[in-house]
Design a protein around this nucleic acid. Structure first.
Lengths: 210, 210
DNA sequence: CTCCAGTATTCCGGTTCGAAATATTCCTAA
DNA sequence: TTAGGAATATTTCGAACCGGAATACTGGAG
């Protein structure tokens, strides 16, 4: 334990994206996500990437800000994982489009295969507020949970819709799978919320009984 | 739309934790979480708070870093939402313990009741890698998912255990409810993972059929 | 008596986020 | 027909977030 921890610093890029022994630098997951987006082979601008992410990654990963995307693209290019050129279609102002390189492809692949399996990050504001239930009237808490349930239902339906869209393209078999997973995930979230409301009823009945 | 957005800046503390009309400043959720921890009435040090959070908030919200906790405590004190004193138990070096004030209590309560209901944040690295399934061998993806399933199972069991602990204290009725929710959440996560493995099988069968 | 684990807090640098600022083109409805 | 809004495209900024190292003291085990 104490022989692996101390020099951990050396593998995490304190300075400039240090590469590990196998040549894959230790980038934050966000970088891999952007590179992953590019790994489907199309040339995309930062703007495109953002929409693309909002369309599919949003359900289970994140909805990146432009600042992040553009920043990552610059880093990926610096590392040789992507190349860019300015595209000047007739009349429209130029935009910079990025494409993944072979090294980039090798690096994401290695990351996908070899990165340690990490627990998902969940920040559930609604549950935090439920946890603080003693600070509000039960009726208000109920409202909040109902609103959350509606949200979950909406997301489930959207994921289902987007999964349908992905089904049309053979290359999107895995994205489709994950969108179906997302659909079920939000369905489960809804069910969990219902269950919480039921538990709340029970708690109220309990304390009414004195 | 254009009459509410522009001065949005004024309500988000660009500078120094500006208070809204009702006197509740617009703090990041992290602050409310720390104040929420204190709202159960005990005097706690930053160190205590960290352990407390790791014990219960971890499952559905977050596991804060010390730097965050200590920083938030200072801010809360500055805002008058908490007070602190140095406790000098015999022989042991002093530690600073914090207690919530009445204004603090009023502020968290208002936040819990009135803050807009926001969607949970999920960053699911395993699903991101599944989404990139075309970059690795199906067998490897399967391994990753199985490992994740084990993690979900472990978390479910832990949440169940902690919920049992919370059941012994009457004041922890809501935390207990949320821990039960967590238990089911991780159970669902496990089931979702199983389902994903099944879908993967199907996909393999499909493409084998050519 | 030394070393290790636990308590307690601070410091640092990189990551992440959200929204504003900027600028250009395209569409559309008064 | 022209003002204006929507979409495209990118940059900038400040704050929030995160993890780990650094520091320092104390108590117990061998």
């Amino acid at each position: 334990m104490s022989d692996t921890a101390p020099n951990d610093r050396a593998t995490r890029g304190t300075g400039k994206d240090r590469a590990a022994k196998d040549g894959t630098p230790n980038l934050p997951p966000t970088s891999w996500a952007v590179l992953g987006l590019l790994s489907f082979g199309e040339e995309l601008s930062g703007y495109d990437l953002k929409k693309w992410a909002d369309w599919s990654l949003k359900f289970f990963y994140w909805s990146p800000s432009y600042s992040q995307i553009y920043g990552e693209l610059k880093r990926l290019e610096r590392l040789g994982f992507a190349t860019s050129r300015v595209e000047l279609t007739e009349s429209t102002r130029g935009k910079r489009v990025y494409a993944i390189t072979e090294e980039g492809m090798a690096a994401v692949s290695r990351w996908a295969r070899e990165a340690p399996v990490e627990p998902p990050v969940l920040k559930h504001g609604v549950m935090l507020r439920t946890w603080l239930g003693h600070l509000m009237e039960p009726a208000r808490l109920r409202e909040i949970l109902e609103q959350h349930g509606d949200y979950a239902e909406k997301m489930s339906r959207r994921a289902a819709g987007d999964a349908g869209g992905a089904a049309e393209v053979a290359e999107w078999a895995y994205p489709e799978l994950v969108l179906r997973w997302s659909q079920r995930y939000y369905e489960a979230e809804r069910e969990l919320t219902r269950q919480m409301l039921a538990d709340l009823d029970e708690l109220a009945a309990e304390s009414a009984k004195h």
